[in-house]
Structure formats: C-alpha cells, structure tokens
Design a protein around this nucleic acid. Structure first.
Lengths: 149, 149
DNA sequence: CCGATCTGGATGCAGATGCATTCATCTTGA
DNA sequence: TCAAGATGAATGCATCTGCATCCAGATCGG
C-alpha cells in the first residue's frame, strides 16, 4: 500500500474522501447559515476552549488541536474576540503568549449551534449510511488516515 | 440513522471525515507545492477537460463535475487561461455560453503533476491503510456519502 | 413579433487563507 | 551576564472564496 504507485482502490478512497467531505461540509455549512449561525470553524474552536481546563487555551494549543496554520488561528481568535465569544488575556507563565478563554456568549453560541449542527450531521451523514456498524467502520478507517505518523 | 439525533458512531464518522480530509489534503498539497506544481484544483479541472469529448466543456458542466460555485469556476478558468492551460472560445449552440478546451500545455501539466500526485496519494492515503480491502470498503462508504439524493 | 422572464457567465466587494516578515520574549551557551 | 538563536504571536500583502449583482443571449406567452 505504500508503493509510489497507489492501487486503484486507494485512489478511489482518496477521490471519495475529497468528494464526501466536500458534499457533506457544503450541506452542513448551508444548514448552519440557513439558521443564521456562524461557520463550523467557530464551533470547532469554541468547543476546544470549552473542553479545556478552565475554558482557556494558548493559541498554540488551539492551533495544534485544530490543525490550522498559526496565522489563521490568530485571525480566527480576532473574529471570535470581535464577536465577544472569547477573551484574550496575558499569559502569566510566558510573556510572549496569551490565554484565550471562552466567554459566556461563546458557551451560549455553542449551545445554540449544536442542535442545528447535530441535525445536519444526522441528515447529511447518518442518513446516508445504512447502519451504525458502517458508521463505526468508516470512523475507524478515517481515524487511521488522520493518525499522525 | 436519520433521526435528528445522530448516533455517536455517526458523529465519529463525521469528525473523522473532516480530520482525515484535512490531514491528507494538506500533506498532498504540500508535496505538490514542494515540487513547484500548482494546486490540486487545477489538476481536477484539467482532468475533467481531458476526459471530456474533444477536450472541451462548458463552464456549467465543469461546475457540476467539480461541485464548485459558478463564480469560482469562472475564476479558476481565468487562472488556467492566464497560465495557458485552457482556451476559451465562443459556443456555437448558445451565444451566452462558451467552450473551455484544454491546451497542449494543460495536457503536459497533467502529465507532470500525476507522478507527484500519485506518489502523494500512496504515501498519505495508501500507506495508512492496512490493505486493499480496507481501501475498497472506505471508498464504498465514502461513495455513499457523496451520492446525490 | 416582441416584451417579460430565465439562464450562462462575469465582476465588484467583502471575508478568509497562504506566505513571509516582524516584534517581543524566552532560552542557551560561552 | 549577555549576545545569539529559538519561539509565540501579529501583520502586510497577494490570492482565493463567498455573495450579490449585472449583462447578454435564450425562451416563452400573448
């Protein structure tokens, strides 16, 4: 499987990965927008913050969890801060760094987004899989692709 | 599977889909850039043109095949034309439309990109799957997600 | 035949991303 | 201890995407 010449099955998996993500993401983003909600990226970032100890993370940690480029995280935080969903404060242990914490507004936004997001996942992903076993298999194989190494 | 409340397996499949695509795409795009080649979008568009009868398609057809927004197709064609890889000509059957055809330069670019692209797929997708059966299963399940309906 | 409407495609503008550089602070080693 | 390098984060600029609108040519109803 690791030759420079991928098998046809591997190429099909790759093409399918691109297509499936494109189709599902477009549909889910459309549902969010339809409901007057911000893009998924905001949800992902706020969710990581809420999960974190104290509801706060360093930008660098956020960057690693979201797999985004440094400058994109910086600007995502700009937008979230502008909208009042996060708050920047200086970092006590490292003068270069800072702490980004989720605000009440940010937590409320997560709560507002999840019902829509959840329904969109069910509609655009769940409804296209035949059963839970398929979903589990898919998740396992996709997990292998995303594993670092 | 189509309740408004997706099962945990479905949510895991969705998260895995986003992650796997992000990781694989970033890695493959990086390999292309490393080799001094243009982004994947160019490959996709040129490939559709080369596959098409006469090496030409209407922008609308390209749009449907690539699942891109109309204005993005228009601008992708701008860039490809600017680089000499495609050629716009008026459409005989519909005065509003046009034909976009792949040039020799475009065909040559496809041929230059494929070895790098192929190796990247093998390295970043193939190498992470245990065997061809897994690749086939993955492709099948992803195909269900992308199927229109 | 012709005006109303629809459709294929382009474009202006705002928002987002990639890339290189910059700035400040932290770390290291002589 | 302090200069040299490394690291966390921001920013200027070009490219790309999203969105609304616009334009020209096609289609349809009377």
């Amino acid at each position: 499987m690791s030759a420079t010449e991928p098998s046809e099955a591997v190429v099909n998996a790759w093409v399918g990965l691109m297509r499936a993500q494109q189709v599902a993401l477009q549909a889910i983003e459309a549902d969010l927008k339809q409901a007057g909600l911000p893009p998924l990226g905001w949800y992902d970032a706020l969710l990581e913050l809420r999960r974190a100890e104290g509801g706060a993370l360093r930008p660098l940690e956020l960057q690693q969890r979201l797999l985004l480029a440094q400058h994109n995280v910086s600007r995502l935080i700009d937008r979230l801060e502008e909208a009042g969903h996060v708050h920047r404060s200086p970092c006590s242990s490292d003068g270069r760094g800072q702490m980004v914490s989720i605000t009440e507004s940010g937590r409320a936004l997560l709560d507002r987004m999840w019902p829509i997001y959840r329904a969109a996942i069910a509609a655009h992903v769940g409804a296209r899989l035949d059963n839970d076993a398929d979903a589990t298999t898919l998740a396992r194989l996709l997990g292998q692709l995303a594993a670092r190494g």
